[in-house]
């Protein structure tokens, strides 16, 4: 999809009737994200706690491998590591997943897709940065085309260090993330909403041709 596809336009039907198309209205929500306040959460703390427990025990991972680390996710499904027993499952679409694993280096082009996918996930959503590339650039620290720090572009809940970390490390990462969520600290989506301008500024600084709407949900 390019910018032209998102413009408002008038198309003509077979009987020459006018049809006004506004793709931004049709496919995207134009409102900026809002952080959930305590009042909006509304429900009793015990229900929130129960919901948090359910969220932590049912982590649906977006099956999108950004870098070399994607190969480490496959062993997690195999008999040896079997992440399914911890409630970790893979979903093919961002709409149905709540954990985004950034698996390794992010080039600018991939970052663009990663941001779209992240914004399309329903909150509360969590991000796990895997590998040193997401932490400080790793071996691509001086590359002209890969980002250095992931947490400047999207809020990261858990980092898993290593190049690449073994599947066991990822399992530990899942454990840590579960603990965070159960404590109610998995509020990356709220942080993203609060500091939206800053994140967008950082993203737009490196993504020069921004051919998508600012808000992708």
């Amino acid at each position: 999809m390019s910018l032209e596809d998102l413009e408002k336009r008038t198309v003509y039907g077979p009987d020459n009737e006018e049809i006004n198309v506004d793709p931004l209205q049709d496919y995207y929500c134009a409102a900026t994200p809002e952080a959930k306040t305590e009042a909006q959460k509304g429900t009793a703390p015990i229900i929130e706690k129960f919901a948090n427990w359910a969220r932590s025990e049912s982590l649906w991972v977006l099956a999108y491998g950004t870098g070399c680390g994607a190969i480490e996710m496959r062993p997690l499904m195999t008999p040896k590591y079997d992440a399914y027993r911890f409630g970790v499952q893979w979903r093919p679409t961002p709409r149905q997943s709540n954990l985004f694993i950034i698996s390794g280096y992010l080039s600018i082009k991939t970052l663009k897709i990663a941001i779209r996918a992240y914004e399309q996930m329903p909150s509360p959503k969590y991000v796990m940065g895997v590998g040193s590339c997401t932490i400080n650039g790793g071996m691509y620290f001086d590359s002209y085309n890969t980002i250095n720090r992931l947490d400047h572009y999207m809020p990261v809940d858990v980092y898993v260090a290593g190049c690449m970390p073994r599947p066991e490390s990822l399992l530990t990462g899942f454990d840590l993330l579960k603990k965070l969520i159960k404590e109610g600290k998995g509020t990356g989506a709220d942080k993203y909403a609060k500091e939206f301008e800053w994140y967008k500024g950082n993203q737009k600084k490196i993504i020069k041709n921004w051919d998508m709407p600012d808000f992708n949900w």
Binding site: I135, N136, G137, F141, D142, S143, Y144, T146, I147, N148, R149, H152, N202, K205, I206
Partner: peptide, 17 residues
Amino acid sequence: FDTLKYAEDTFFPRSGR
């Protein structure tokens, strides 16, 4: 073209490397 300088200017390098 100095990639290191470019990367330091563009991406946010984490100190302590």
